[in-house]
Write a protein that binds this DNA or RNA. Sequence first.
DNA 1: GTTTGACTTCGAGTAGACTCGAACTCATAC
DNA 2: GTATGAGTTCGAGTCTACTCGAAGTCAAAC
Lengths: 147, 147
Amino acid sequence: MTAASKTTLSIGEVSALTGLTTHTLRFYEQEGLFVEAVRRNAAGRRVFTQQEVGWLRVCAKLRSSGMPLPDIRRYAELVRKGAGTEADRFEILRRHEARVQRQVADLQEALDVIQAKVALYADHLAAGSADTLWRDGPDCTPARDVS
Amino acid sequence: MTAASKTTLSIGEVSALTGLTTHTLRFYEQEGLFVEAVRRNAAGRRVFTQQEVGWLRVCAKLRSSGMPLPDIRRYAELVRKGAGTEADRFEILRRHEARVQRQVADLQEALDVIQAKVALYADHLAAGSADTLWRDGPDCTPARDVS
DNA sequence: GTTTGACTTCGAGTAGACTCGAACTCATAC
DNA sequence: GTATGAGTTCGAGTCTACTCGAAGTCAAAC
């Protein structure tokens, strides 16, 4: 029986399945990111389900794309409340979607600047004309002046 | 004479031109991000050039795309040293380029998950079938089970 | 001649999300 | 029966890049 096919999972197994450390999983519980209270076995240890693993994977994606913990907590609360909260959940997701799209656009812009520089260095290094490369021009137009 | 066309600029003008606060500009000086030591006028005030504004704009892009301050400092040091450091500068830029591309790919992956959820909520809200929406499935396949 | 506003230095504080470590409890393997 | 390893709680520490505020200087406007 692999961890991925078990119906109940220890914190260590969940850690392996999600890539989140056990410390982080406990921290997330404390922060109220779980939809339902985390169950415990007779010995007081945490018991997780595959469903929770699924949710944690979504959490990991939301976090890695920059959603703050309070927003995820809010979303989890709405799911817990159940029917009637869908419009609010939708709103949270849509806002985050917009935020991520902005992030991608900003990174792409930075990437353009970086790649322009990389191309210049590649050219000049290949041509052996390294000494003609220098400081950045006023408006960062690499054609004139480069760092 | 607009700030953008002056040959020497105060810290306030540079702040306006770059979007960096005066606090941040002083902080960057202290962190060694400038290629040359920042000049001062008779009164001890900082005097900047258009060239420095160009460099700061590049710095802003590097920072917003996640290059750590120590890497930018190192790059600035290499530019200061001048000829013979081009291969190292190229390397720093190439590494950062790769890092940014990874970031974009990761964000895009997160965006796919988010958009799948957004689409589901949009459908269900439109259909008025909100009550069929629920928790995430084990492997985050929104078709089966959704938060 | 004083008020204003932009500048100076310095040190301390903030934010968010972990991350770590110590001290303890259990269950299982040997 | 004890050693090992995985779990528990709790509080404290870390990291990075700012961000703020206090106290002072200085030039120009009025």
